[in-house]
Structures are given as C-alpha cells and as structure tokens.
C-alpha cells in the first residue's frame, strides 16, 4: 500500500514536470490518468500545492553551485513569469458572476451582467457577443442570427452571411450587420453604435443609415435626427481592455462608461456634465479605489469624492472656470 502511494506520487511529479511546457496531447493523457483513479488527482494536488507554496520563497533561496557555472542567475525574474502565464491578467476577470435567467417560454433567454462584470455569449463559431457591465440582452435559441440589447453595452463579432444577416434589436431600432465588429450602447439618453470592422445598417427598413469602419452613430433620445461622427476604429470596444477613447464626448458619457466597467455609481456635477472630453483613459487591473480616483482626477481634470453611494465628480479645486 505504502509502495503504491509512492508510485502514484512519482507519477504525479512526472506529470507536473511534463505539463510545465506540455502540449495538448500531454494534457489529454494527463486528463485520462486523472480519470483512472481518484487518488491520482489527490496526489497531483499535493505536488502542485507544494510547487505553488515555494513560489514566494524561491527568490530568497540561495543556489550554491560551482563558480564556473556560467549562467547563474541569468534572466531570473522575467523567465519565472512564464510559470504563471496569464495569472494576474486572469484575476481581473475573476470576479465575473453572471446571471442567466431562463425567463421566457421555450426559446428566448436573457443574459444579464451586473456593473463591473463582463460576459461572452457565443452564438456560433464565428459570432460572439461580449457584454459589458450593467447590461441586459435577450437571445433566441432557435435563431442565432438575432439578439436584443435591452440596456447597457455590448461588442459584437459577427460572421457575415448574405442570406441570413445578423440583426440586433435596440429598443425600437434595428442594427443589421454587413460583416463585422461593432459596439452598441443603450442608455436612457439614447443609442450609440460604433463600427470597428466591416459595415452595419441602422434601421434598414426605415432611415437605413449605413455605417462603415471608423464611424459611429448617435441616436439621442432628446433628438429626432441621428448623427454620424468619426470614431477611431481601434477604440471601438476598447472597454474590453479597460481602455476608453474619447473625441469630444460629454463627461456624463465618460462617467456612464466608467460606471459600467468599474461597478461604481458615478454622479457628475451638472456644471461639468456637458464638458467635452478628448483623449484616452486606461484602467489597469489595480482595483484599489484610491489609485483609480487619483488617476481619473488627473486624466479628466475633475475632483472626485468617494461617498457611501458611489463617486461624485466635481470641478477640480482651483479650476480657472
């Protein structure tokens, strides 16, 4: 029995070494080995935990080796990074909890994110929708070429099919793709559609406004006409990377974008709500509120106070105007 345990542990160690730079085939074999016996997984957990536990200690360990070993300490820190490939990046999306509500009868379903979270919905192999925070969408199981944006923001990567165009319903409006990556926001103030690749038609059966890459359409609730304006194509959907690019949009829109991504309520003093913002804002994975506030105050030239119910943006102290 004891012999058996030792053999399983030896195998677990072999796997751990092999998988460090293993290929898909190695992992599949490993997965099959785990399935053979629950003790295999237990043994592997222990080896893996031991290796993770020494991670913070390793930088302090002294490796006594012969002096003629020419490559001692070569490139230590950067290489070590590889071990946790993607680890810290992944933390950022970790908080994501989504709510999947089987709300309507047979075929429709609703997907909802809360502020600060994102979620991907896959409609087919080349069509996917990334929901930003505080967003509600509806889909149809029987029709993967249809989606409805009830509220919030989403980025669409759509496979173009002449015979079955992809149609997005936004309130009473329709956006139809002509092969494409586009971003749509719906708030109480109106609708914004921005195209990064390909082309879309806005309300193909009514005014039928064609938008190409690098163009955005604003359908403001307070305005009867839609407006088309230029937008940097690579800025479309940049929120997925925590990046926001503005070319003269009002501060109130900036606040709404940040609200969705940070998951914090942000109110804007009406004296500056209409102020035009140009430039780009990057949110990094650093969730510390004080740091975010400080960076945003600089970027937007405002004063931000954190209250119990969220943030308030006010004119910067000592502002000339």
């Amino acid at each position: 029995m004891g012999h058996d345990v030792e053999q399983v542990r030896a195998r677990a160690i072999e796997w751990h070494v092999r998988l460090r730079d293993g290929e898909a085939g190695d992992w599949e074999e490993f997965s099959a080995w785990l399935a053979e016996d629950p003790r295999h997984g237990e043994a592997y957990d222990l080896v893996e935990a031991a290796d993770l536990a020494i991670e913070p200690l390793l930088p302090h360990v002294v490796f006594r080796e012969a002096a003629n070993d020419d490559d001692i300490r070569r490139g230590g820190a950067s290489a070590r990074r590889r071990w946790v490939v993607g680890g810290s990046l992944l933390m950022a999306s970790l908080a994501a909890v989504m709510i999947l509500l089987p709300r309507f009868a047979a075929d429709g379903y609703e997907v909802r994110t809360i502020a600060g979270q994102q979620r991907v919905v896959t409609l087919d192999a080349q069509t996917r929708v990334v929901l930003n925070g505080a967003t509600t969408m509806r889909f149809d199981r029987n029709d993967p070429r249809f989606a409805s944006l009830v509220e919030g923001e989403a980025l669409f990567h759509v496979r173009h099919d002449e015979a079955h165009p992809f149609t997005l319903q936004v309130g009473g409006n329709r956006v139809q793709d002509v092969g494409t990556v586009f971003n749509v926001v719906k708030t109480r103030d109106g609708i914004r559609v921005a195209v990064s690749e390909g082309k879309v038609l806005y309300n193909p059966d009514a005014e039928s406004v064609a938008l190409g890459a690098g163009q955005a359409l604003v359908d403001a609730a307070a305005d009867s006409e839609v407006r088309v304006e230029p937008v940097p194509a690579d800025a479309v959907g940049a929120w997925q990377q925590g990046r926001f690019v503005y070319t003269g949009q009002p501060l109130s829109q900036v606040a709404a974008d940040l609200e969705r991504s940070l998951g914090i309520r942000i109110a804007v003093d009406h004296a500056i709500a209409g102020r035009a913002v140009s430039g780009s804002i990057a949110l990094d994975g650093d969730g510390r509120e004080a740091m975010q506030i400080e960076r945003l105050e600089h970027a937007l030239d405002v004063a931000i106070t954190a209250g119990t119910d969220g943030w308030i943006m006010k004119p910067a102290a000592g502002a000339q105007r």
């Binding site: 290929e23 993607g86 990046l89 999306s93 991907v120 990334v130 990377q241």
Partner: peptide, 17 residues
C-alpha cells in the same frame, strides 16, 4: 473565454497546451 475575447493574450505557439 472572456480572457481570450479580450485579446489580451500574446502570440501562442501551441494553443492546446
């Protein structure tokens, strides 16, 4: 999936592993 979709991943020689 979310991480993949965010495009934050660099070039990868062997996607499976």
């Amino acid at each position: 999936l979310l991480t993949l979709s965010s495009g934050k991943t660099g070039p990868v020689s062997e996607p499976g592993g």
